[in-house]
Each structure stands twice: as structure tokens, then as C-alpha cells.
Simulated scan of single mutants.
Amino acid sequence: MSIDFSSNFFYGQIPKELGELISLQALNFSNNHLIGPIPTSFGNMVALESLDLSSNKLGGRIPSQLTNLTFLAVLNLSQNALAGPIPRGKQFDTFENDSYSGNLGLCGPPLSKQCGNDEEPKPPVPMPKEDEGSEIAFFWKVVMMGYGCGVVLGLSMGYIVFTTGRPWWFIRMVERDWQNNVTKWIRRNRGRRN
């Protein structure tokens, strides 16, 4: 139901695997020497009611995935090195200044420090994706299959026709055209030499 690892002199990063404890209701890592970012996997702990990560050396942004924690009633991220805008929405709109105090890099409501344009997260530009279900991918698969089949069929038929000598009408037509083209080419080259 709850894990209390407060005041244990733990150091290093918080393991992201803790996010797999989806039935956990309270997590306390306060008063340790933890560094690094808050794992985004914490957003999976949907039953979490209390999260205390205060008095550590955690850095980076507060993950927006934490707004998925709709039962979160207590949040204490104070006295860390967190930076950037505080996520908005759901339970995060209910927390006061004391949940974030001592993080000089944080900005946005409920803090009085407003975020500048350079600190606001920019939404990622969606890239056109050719996944398995898209029409573009399907179209190119059909084109490449047709091209591949055509090449294989053409080479096979050419090999069969010229090795067996049948059908005669096709061979005569190709040989006649080939012979006429070679003859014209020879005459042109002789004329240039003279």
C-alpha cells in the first residue's frame, strides 16, 4: 500500500521500475541524496494518493505524465533542483506553492514566477508516419510488388524465349530490329570517319 524510504541516505537515480507498482497509494523518498529526473513511469501509478520527493537533488522538468495521477492528494517536490514549467491539469491545479518551494528553476502557476517563451514546452511537430495501416505505405507496397513481379516475369520470359528459340515471330522481330539498328549505326560511324 505504501513505501516510506525517507531519511535513508539513498543516492543515485530513482528506478523507473517503481512505476510498475500501480496499486501503490503512498511513496516517500524525502530527505535522501537522489539525483536525476523524476521518472515518467510514475504516471502509471494511478492509485497514488501521496508522493513526497522533497529534500533531494532531483533535476529536470516535472513529467507531464504525473497529471494522470487523479487520486493524488499530497504532493511535495520541495527543496530539489527541478526546473521548467509546472504541469497543468487535473490534480496539479489543486497544489499550492509549498509543494514546489526551493526549486528555483520552476515557473508557472501556482508560483508567482511566470514562464518566459523560451521555458514553455513546445509541442512536438507531428511527422508524417508511414506505419503499417497507412494508405501511403499500402500504395508503395503494391507498386513494389508489381515492379518486382514484372522484373522477374520479364527476365524469365526473355531467358526462355532466347534459349528455346520460340516463338519465332518474336525472335525474328527482335533480330530484325537489332540488325537494322546495328547496320544503321555502322553506316553512320563509317560516314563520320570518311
Rank of each mutant, 00 (worst) to 15 (best):
K141W: 15
V161T: 06
G148R: 13
P110E: 07
R172P: 07
V151N: 10
S54T: 04
R88V: 15
A137F: 13
C149V: 13
F162D: 06
R166Q: 10
L72Y: 09
W169S: 09
L155S: 05
A83L: 10
V161G: 02
V142E: 10
S99P: 05
T70K: 15
F170S: 09
V46E: 14
F92P: 08
N44Y: 11
G108A: 11
P85F: 10
N181G: 00
W185Y: 00
G154H: 05
L153D: 04
C115F: 09
W185I: 01
S134Q: 09
L104D: 08
R187W: 02
D52M: 03
T163L: 03
S54E: 03
E175Q: 11
W140V: 12
K113F: 02
N68I: 14
M173C: 08
Y159M: 01
P121F: 01
L75R: 00
L75P: 05
C107F: 06
L106Y: 06
S64Q: 11
G148T: 12
V143F: 14
D177V: 06
F71S: 14
P123W: 00
F92T: 08
S55K: 07
V174Y: 06
E130S: 12
N56G: 07
P85R: 13
W140P: 13
V46T: 13
F92L: 11
S101N: 03
T67K: 08
Q179H: 10
T67G: 13
G105R: 05
P128V: 06
N56P: 09
V142Y: 11
C149F: 12
P110C: 03
L106P: 01
V46C: 15
R61E: 06
Q91W: 09
M145H: 14
P126I: 01
R187P: 02
E135I: 08
F138K: 14
I186S: 01
Y147L: 15
T183Y: 06
V74E: 13
G60R: 05
G154V: 05
N181H: 00
L51Q: 01
G102T: 04
G84H: 12
T163A: 02
D93I: 14
L58D: 00
E96A: 05
C115Y: 08
G158A: 03
M173S: 09
F162S: 04
L58M: 07
V174A: 07
V143R: 12
M145A: 13
P85D: 10
W140K: 15
P123D: 00
K184E: 01
I86N: 07
P121A: 03
L153W: 05
C149W: 11
G146F: 11
C107I: 07
T70M: 15
L69W: 10
E130P: 09
V174C: 07
D118P: 06
V143E: 12
L75N: 05
S64Y: 03
G89S: 13
P121N: 04
D98T: 03
P110G: 04
M127F: 04
S101H: 04
A83E: 08
V152R: 06
